[in-house]
Design a protein around this nucleic acid. Structure first.
Length: 420
DNA sequence: TCTGGGGTCCTAGGACCC
DNA sequence: TCTGGGGTCCTAGGACCC
């Protein structure tokens, strides 16, 4: 058996932990640059605020309704997430952290799952202050499904649903009342294609002809169907896998036209990406750089620049990677455009300790840099991410994000600790 | 005026090998 | 007229997730 535990409206709930007066109030959290809505309290949903709408389109609601708005504070959310996961881990044999706000738990050979579900919920509420819902079922997809139902009917089920506690009659009713595109793994596109064939509900889906599904949509959807039927096709992934792609990108707070501004941003992203590579003890073979103009401005000419290069030797060295990235940037930069976003991608990632083919013409010149990079990592882990920066990062701060409604980092910054 | 960021997996097809 | 069989690796693109 598996459980799926997930924080309700997670970012909003995090903001409320240290602002208890906002319970029962409509609140929202915005994406980077205060762009659009990415988390809503249930009261905010009730007044009609949709997921993903641009902030500027709902500013009238804010004046009318006393809506409270937050810029996203990932430092706070990541710390509360860590506490939530540790709390869950203290109650079950193993967990798989699936995203910042949810995890799967292994419940094999445990009894009284309903009570366990409530214990998990209550302990997270008490220790961390985040409300959650719990779905428990024989497969991960069904656990997601139960969690979904527990959220939808939170007051009826008190946040916990155990699939196997239901008789088949109730199970069928639950399946029949859920649109097929609310199943985990069925998105917009496949949902539409299924609907065109008369498969509208989760019940239709589990009764659909399996070989036909397989032929049309492939093995992924077949597995989803099997899991919905109660046949496990996936297990918990306990060890955090290393990333195979690392992307760092940002929209700018302001428009950037100059190469300088882009160079500063690219240096910053490279520095973050390279640190991530080293953190997972890996090297990248391929480095890409991209720059975009604002795709929403139909009145302006658009330009998307992208260039990628394969390195002779894989690297996790900030200086080497930045040097190459800056060359790529110079290649794709075109003056005269208003740039809105840029970023980097590191791919072709492999573990650092594997044998590396040496370059015949340029024998390994990076060894002496390894010590420099580990000193770098030690300093930043002790004094903070920005305690060391590349000089080129400091050429311009024009690209930094807008975060006008940022809450304090209550749990991670001494100067911002809550005082009464 | 103002519209986020970061991932995964699978498949099909081409180039190439013996 | 008739043109093998079995494989690997890589890439691009599509679908999905939070």
């Amino acid at each position: 058996m598996f459980a799926l535990i997930d924080g309700n409206n997670f970012y909003c709930s995090c903001e409320r932990v240290y602002r208890p007066e906002l319970k029962q109030q409509p609140i929202i959290v915005l994406s980077n640059n205060d762009g659009c809505v990415i988390s809503r309290s249930s009261e905010a949903k009730d007044i009609g605020i949709k997921m993903g709408v641009p902030y500027f389109q709902i500013q009238h609601l804010i004046q009318q309704r006393k809506l409270t708005v937050f810029s996203s504070n990932y430092e706070l959310y990541a710390d509360l997430s860590r506490r939530m996961m540790n709390t869950i881990a203290s109650l079950v044999p193993a967990i798989e952290i699936y995203s910042i706000d949810e995890c799967f738990a292994d419940l094999h050979n445990l009894n009284n799952l309903h009570q366990l579900g409530h214990n998990i919920r209550n302990r997270i509420q008490q220790w961390v202050g985040i409300p959650t819902c719990v779905g428990i079922a024989p497969t991960r997809t069904l656990a997601k499904f139960c969690n979904h139902l527990a959220k939808r009917h939170r007051h009826h089920f008190n946040g916990v649903i155990v699939w196997t506690d239901w008789n088949s009659n109730i199970q069928q009713r639950a399946l029949a009342s859920t649109p097929v595109n609310e199943i985990w793994g069925i998105g917009h596109r496949i949902g539409q294609k299924l609907a065109a064939q008369g498969i509208h509900t989760a019940l239709d889906f589990i009764n659909a002809h399996t070989p036909t599904l397989r032929k049309q949509f492939g093995v992924v959807l077949e597995r989803t169907q099997r899991e919905m039927q109660g046949l496990p096709c996936s297990e918990l992934i306990i060890n955090e896998a290393s990333r195979q792609h690392i992307v760092r990108s940002r929209s700018f707070g302001n428009i950037i036209t100059s190469l300088d501004g882009l160079q500063a941003a690219i240096s910053h992203h490279i520095s973050a990406g390279a640190a991530k590579l080293r953190q997972q003890n890996s090297h990248a073979h391929i480095i890409s750089v991209f720059i975009y103009t604002n795709r929403f401005r139909h009145d302006q000419s658009q330009y998307n620049g992208y260039q990628s290069i394969k390195l002779p030797q894989p690297s996790a060295d900030t200086l080497t990677l930045n040097h190459i990235a800056q060359n790529l940037l110079r290649n794709i930069y075109r003056p005269g455009y208003e740039y809105k976003k840029c970023g980097i991608e590191l791919s072709g990632i492999e573990p650092a300790q594997t044998f590396q083919q040496q370059d015949l013409l340029y024998p390994n010149q990076h060894n002496h840099r390894t010590k420099l990079m580990s000193a770098w990592d030690n300093i930043t882990s002790r004094y903070g991410r920005n305690s060391i920066q590349l000089g080129s990062e400091l050429q311009s701060n024009h690209w930094h994000m807008t975060r006008a409604q940022l809450s304090p980092c209550y749990t991670t910054q001494f100067l911002e600790i809550l005082t009464i």
